[in-house]
């Protein structure tokens, strides 16, 4: 019987593939790698590309990953696929965006505070109106 290696492909949002394989090909950062059973332990980043899994029956399945990490142990291959497109400056932009939102919120704090105050005053006025109406009714009957 041919030797196999167990392959797990997971992303942060779901499990994509899990099963035995004869050989796995992945787009590592330094070039495509092919991994057979009993490969030496390896840890590398992945480029966007195709991960191909050769099943023991001889079929081949392929999965697109937009980057991620690849871990190899002699009998297990784990592909931690990214869901999002990652790049240093893209991440940076996301971080700046999150910061900007916080600052904006802070700047708007006064207006929001006024809004809350106005709403409280409105509620108070409405309660007074209701009370007046009730009094008027009681006076009539």
């Amino acid at each position: 019987m041919a030797m196999t290696i167990h392959v797990d492909i997971v992303s942060a949002e779901e499990e994509i593939f899990s099963g035995p394989a004869q050989m796995v090909f992945a787009p590592a950062e330094m070039g495509e790698v092919g991994i057979a059973p009993r490969h030496a332990p390896l840890l590398t980043r992945l480029k966007p590309g195709e991960v191909r899994v050769q099943s023991p029956q001889g079929g081949e399945e392929s999965f697109y990953v937009s980057g991620g990490m690849l871990e190899v142990q002699p009998h297990v291959v784990t592909v931690l696929a990214d869901v999002a497109l990652r790049a240093r400056d893209l991440d940076e932009a996301q971080a700046l965006e999150a910061k900007r939102r916080a600052e904006e919120e802070l700047a708007q704090r006064t207006s929001e505070f006024e809004y809350a105050q106005a709403r409280a005053q409105l509620a108070e006025a409405m309660a007074q109106l209701r009370a007046l109406e009730r009094l008027r009714k009681a006076g009539r009957s």
Binding site: A12, M30, L42, T44, L80
Partner: peptide, 17 residues
């Protein structure tokens, strides 16, 4: 492990994820 490209970068990416 064998690291590609080097251990620090790989570790950085991994821990962040």
């Amino acid at each position: 492990y064998l690291y590609e490209p080097d251990s620090k970068e790989v570790l950085d990416a991994l821990l962040m994820r």
